[in-house]
Design a binder for these strands. Structure first.
Lengths: 339, 339
DNA sequence: GCGGTTACTGTAAGCGGTTACATTCAAAGC
DNA sequence: GCTTTGAATGTAACCGCTTACAGTAACCGC
């Protein structure tokens, strides 16, 4: 029953090595010259005492946390694995720590954002929980942020990294129409104000229009980019005595595609014979779904990596306001009717 | 060009409200009575000034970070989504923050663990980067930890949450043998010292032995529980002029199963006719792989949730040393030959 | 030999909170 | 009325670092 883990402090090190705490600090941070002899002694003492600087004390004194935050709407999507991977790799390389937190528009009633200037040096924002006005305020106060899959408010110079949604979706839907003769195409939206979802809806509508197909509100469902919700929504849609005829589904993203495929399967609908299905993201499992999923390949790990790198750019005073849109590419597989 | 975001401090609040900083602190933390009148005034001032306490200052003074850490070997697996989900939900509910970091045995050469007593109040350890001796030392110093998918060193009272591996694997392999007549069963290990992998290997061997099948080292490959590595290993195994005959693959986990299925597919091997395939975890995509994957359902989100809850139990001084093994269940689908 | 550098080191004042201890004051007990 | 008590508040000492400032000694060029 240890009383307390009274950890070893910089003063212990200083005393043991016979120098001042300032010298120890300088040696550790390598931000001022320290003589050969003292360096040797410190190296020895540090490892003997197993000294680890107390993070909070460091943060308080230096006004830097060496932590960056990743703010997500939720964690209900396999999509986040490559994203996290990209972010984490950069953060680790830089010797920083990564806090991840979920926060969405509804959270605002209950709490303030769990991460921000009070506990991080900068934020990657993949969340609708921070409104444009919040972004503007934070940015005005000089807090470094990079938006992920989200465009900054007009003429606010916050850098952003996202993927091309509109054009690729339009092409994908046109493929369904022109190659496979589908005209009753269901679209599963993502979260209501999520930008990817809006952009994909734009692409969807523009493809319909360009091909003389009237937009039918009954064909638009809310799948939330989530496997389980997509399943429920689709299950209900199908159970509804099939009042609404349809011949294909754009699931919004690959995660939702899993739910859609399960629902179709349970209702005895054949894919792609009866209903064609297409997704978005090309997550690792997409080629091995049943049938293999036609989808859009999005460079999600790169998005994470680049966003993190740009955030560190800001921390190192390389200002930027670029909106970066990484290219995407359609991957044709069986689920749309190809092959 | 703001000079600095000179944020509002507790002293500003105190001055504005005409009270001492101590009173403000007490009001915020609600750890001592504050009179009605002062409370009202403070409430108003706090929201006017948009005061947010500086985390590091708080940590330093209170010796609590209100942060817990999750240490992972890597982030290369969809398995981590449900795990993170469970952990994050609890952490958020408790008003804490979550740092995630990757650290594995090889990282030890380059760096100390990025998270520990210096920057967190407790750790969830799902990593082989901390050796038993590290765990013993940390535990002896009173640092709260919960092990995830890992058993504590003998007679060291660190709580642990994992899933049942050995018996369920034995049954799964016996199913391949007894129901589908397979006898040349490839096993893809996970990371070498990962406990799940070892336990599953035990189950695998025990099933072979119980059924009079000699263990053949040539059938054991290192898939690392990773999609891409599993693919490469399997691809090479198949390309090797098929010197080693086999009729089934236990992929170690579902993520590796994706790689294995892709490799088999590319080599024109039919599943399950030529080769049966089974996985572990029952990730969301498993029912929709091609063919649907026979696997073991593991309650991964519960593991995350329970582990986090137990860590908070430790923080609240409810000691525990229980090793918790959550039950698992085989899910039969097409890939083993069923249906 | 002297002023001006340069290299190294120490002293001590914060950073922005928490909290032990002291103080004040009104209500209660006798 | 006087002491006791407890609620409410203030004062100030930390928490463990960083860093501005100051100081010393050695070295440089002239």
């Amino acid at each position: 029953m240890t009383k307390r883990s009274s950890s070893v402090t910089i003063r212990d090190v200083a005393r043991q090595a016979g120098v001042s705490v300032a010298t120890v600090s300088r040696y550790i941070n390598r931000n001022a010259p320290v003589s050969e002899g003292v360096s040797c002694r410190l190296e020895k003492v540090l490892s003997e005492l197993k000294y680890v600087p107390h993070a909070a004390a460091r943060h308080l004194a230096s006004r830097k946390t060496r932590v960056i935050g990743l703010l997500l709407n939720n964690l209900h999507n396999d999509f986040f694995v490559p994203l996290l991977n990209g972010v984490e790799a950069v953060v680790r390389r830089k010797g920083y720590n990564l806090i991840i937190a979920t926060y969405h528009a509804d959270s605002r009633k209950e709490m303030l954002p769990p991460i921000g200037p009070h506990n991080t040096d900068g934020l990657l924002v993949f969340s609708d929980g921070l409104f444009d006005e919040d972004l503007i305020n934070l940015n005005a106060s000089g807090f470094p942020m990079v938006l992920v899959h989200r465009t900054p408010p007009p003429s606010v110079p916050i850098p952003s990294v996202t993927v091309e949604n509109v054009e690729v979706t339009r092409k994908l839907i046109e493929h369904l129409i022109q190659v496979h003769g589908r005209r009753r195409i269901v679209f599963l939206r993502g979260p209501l104000h999520q930008e990817d979802s809006c952009k994909r809806e734009m692409g969807y509508k523009s493809a319909l229009q360009a091909n003389g197909i009237p937009f039918d509100e009954n064909l638009v469902l809310n799948g939330d980019f989530e496997r389980d919700i997509a399943f429920q929504v689709m299950d209900q849609f199908l159970g509804n005595d099939r009042q609404v005829a349809f011949d294909s589904v754009f699931t919004g993203d690959d995660d939702a595609a899993i739910g859609v495929l399960r629902a179709l399967h349970q209702h005895g609908v054949r894919v792609p014979e009866d209903v064609a299905v297409i997704g978005f993201d090309d997550l690792g499992f997409a080629p091995f779904l049943n049938p293999p999923l036609t989808t859009v390949r999005a460079p999600t790990e790169s998005v994470g990596r680049i966003a993190a790198e740009r955030l560190f750019g800001l921390l190192e005073n390389q200002p930027s306001d670029e909106v970066m849109i990484l290219p995407t590419e359609i991957i044709f597989r069986r689920s749309c009717g190809c092959q």
